[in-house]
């Protein structure tokens, strides 16, 4: 299974851990990734607020590169995923936008590159049966709240990821790994990621709503697939404690990191040392089951 892999800017910075774990896990699952040369920012999350044509063009510059590679584009950042899909939708449905983008890029692009998320590849292309066969360890009943956030699932007709209100793709992966994918109500609520530096007061409120619901649902950790959700929910627990006195210590772990653990990879290789809320209890829980 060969794909063009778009890492996104956060892969080199705030989501280095997502990047490391995705690249560690992929080859073991028989997934080959080729990065488009000179890939650039897709324009999320700010360009669409400023200039519509700019946001579509920034995404299209990368889509056009992948078009030349003749492959599907796999994205692991939910925010890039959303922008790429929106750009494809606008270019393929609006001839005026396609014309503007062609003029801007100096070449035509038709909006036809298929954009996929890594989680979709596991479920739709690899299949859970094959995925299970590759596993070395089990999560041994670890209770995980899968948190999808906004950008993977909305707007539904453009994102077309699983189910917009009750997605289960990550839960299926958790279950396949021997964990318990919890049925909980805040899977697709927004954590306020795009306001993280400008309105941290609001972000603290939105994040706490999600984390407290996960805790009340019995979660031992939250699994995420979006860099903005990860750093937001991880970093803001300190502010939640300071402003409300509520201590959660809820590890916010990328789904690819959990996958890597079940594939027998080291914490270092998966970037688990980069998480702000220590995942040690979760790791102990999984490892005690490995020993027994």
């Amino acid at each position: 299974m060969k794909y063009a892999y778009f890492p996104g800017c956060s892969a080199e910075s705030t989501a280095r851990d997502l990047y490391l774990s995705t690249l560690a896990v992929a080859p073991v699952l028989g997934v080959e990734f080729i990065e488009p040369q000179g890939w650039s920012c897709c324009g999320t999350t700010m360009a669409h607020q400023v200039d519509h044509d700019l946001s579509v063009s920034l995404a299209a510059a990368n889509l056009a590169k992948v078009k030349d590679m003749g492959l599907d584009m796999v994205v692991s950042c939910a925010s890039c995923y959303s922008r790429m899909k929106i750009a494809n939708h606008e270019i393929s449905t609006n001839p005026k936008t396609r014309g503007i983008v062609s003029a801007t890029l100096g070449r035509d692009y038709d909006g036809s590159v298929k954009v996929r998320h890594f989680v979709e590849i596991i479920i739709e292309d690899m299949g859970l049966a094959a995925f299970k066969k590759a596993l070395k360890h089990s999560l041994q009943g670890l209770k995980v709240a899968s948190y999808y956030g906004c950008l993977l699932v909305r707007p539904p007709e453009i994102a077309s990821f699983d189910d917009p209100e009750n997605p289960v793709y990550m839960d299926k992966i958790i279950d396949a790994m021997g964990g318990v994918g919890l049925d909980w109500p805040h899977k697709v609520e927004c954590c306020g990621g795009s306001l993280t530096l400008t309105r941290s007061d609001l972000v603290v409120k939105l994040s706490e709503t999600i984390i407290s619901m996960a805790k009340d649902s019995g979660a031992q950790c939250i699994a995420v697939a979006c860099p903005m959700c990860q750093i937001n929910l991880d970093m803001r627990q300190d502010d939640i404690l300071k402003t409300t006195g509520h201590r959660y210590d809820m590890p916010i772990i990328y789904i690819t990191q959990l996958m890597g653990l079940c594939l027998g990879m080291s914490e270092q290789a998966l970037g688990l040392n980069k998480l702000i809320i220590s995942p040690q209890e979760t790791l102990n829980f999984i490892q005690s089951s490995i020993r027994s």
């Binding site: 906004c150 909305r154 707007p155 990621g193 795009s194 306001l195």
Partner: peptide
């Protein structure tokens, strides 16, 4: 303060 989450549109 709109977070562009598109829950409204969905």
């Amino acid at each position: 303060t709109c977070v562009s989450c598109a829950t409204c549109y969905s």
